Structure formats: structure tokens, C-alpha cells
Simulated scan of single mutants.
Amino acid sequence: MPNFDDQIYAVLVQIPKGKVTTYGDVAKIAGFPRHARHVGKLLGRLPKESRLPWFRVVNGKGMISLKGARFIDQRELLLEDGVEVKENGAISLRRFKWDGDPA
């Protein structure tokens, strides 16, 4: 059976610059459907110096789920990446969602 963490990381590195995907879609693409919360927990444990594009993952409503300074960090990284993010953390999934095709 594939290692959950490694499978999630393998999906993360495929998300192209300027795109986002959801926790649920990361889990599904990695072969672990219905494990969105596990994806969120795993990303929350990444070291600060991680080079994985964790910030390209948002909730199923197209919103940044993080709070406080982490919200600001994710929003700034997405803006630098070319993703339009509203002040409240909303992102148009219709426009910016990655469909799972390798970059």
C-alpha cells in the first residue's frame, strides 16, 4: 500500500504555479478519497522551510482555511503566484482550479 504522506507530497509538487486545488482533490488524486482532513493535518505539520507548494491547497469552497498570520502568509504566496485572492481569502475555483493533469 502506498505511503499516504509520500502520495500527498507527490500530488503537491504537480500543482502548477498560478493554480490551486482543494484538500479533497489532493486526497482523491493521491488515491485516498474522502481524506481531505488528513491532507490538511499533514500540510499543517510541514516544516516552515518546506519547499512544497502547500499554499496552493484551499478548502472545497475555494477559501483559505488558515487563520491569523498563516492566513496572511498563504494569501501573499498565492498572490505572488498569480492567483487572485479576495481580502476574505476567496479564490475563484472556476478560474484557478487545477484539474489534476501533471504540470
Rank of each mutant, 00 (worst) to 15 (best):
G100F: 08
L79Y: 00
A90E: 14
K61F: 13
G100E: 12
E84W: 02
T21D: 11
V20T: 07
K28T: 15
F71L: 00
G40D: 10
A103E: 13
T21Q: 11
L93W: 03
A69T: 12
F71P: 01
Y9D: 08
P33S: 14
F55I: 01
L78A: 03
I15Q: 10
E84C: 02
N3I: 12
A27P: 07
L12I: 01
S50G: 08
F71S: 00
L42D: 05
H38W: 05
R75Q: 12
Q7T: 08
K41W: 12
W98D: 07
R34C: 03
G40Q: 14
L93K: 09
Q7C: 10
L93T: 06
V83S: 06
V58E: 04
R45W: 03
A30G: 10
D81E: 07
I8V: 11
G60T: 06
P2M: 01
Y23A: 14
L46I: 02
K48E: 14
W54D: 05
K61S: 15
L42F: 11
R95V: 15
F32K: 11
V26A: 14
H38C: 05
I72S: 07
A27M: 13
R51V: 12
K86I: 00
N3F: 01
V85M: 03
L93V: 07
P102H: 11
E87P: 09
Q74D: 01
K67E: 13
F4K: 03
G24W: 13
E80D: 15
I29W: 12
A36H: 15
Y23R: 13
P102R: 10
L77Q: 13
R75D: 00
F71R: 10
G60K: 10
G89A: 00
R51Y: 04
I29G: 09
F4L: 08
R56D: 04
M63Q: 14
R34F: 15
P47W: 01
V39R: 08
K19D: 03
I8P: 03
D5L: 03
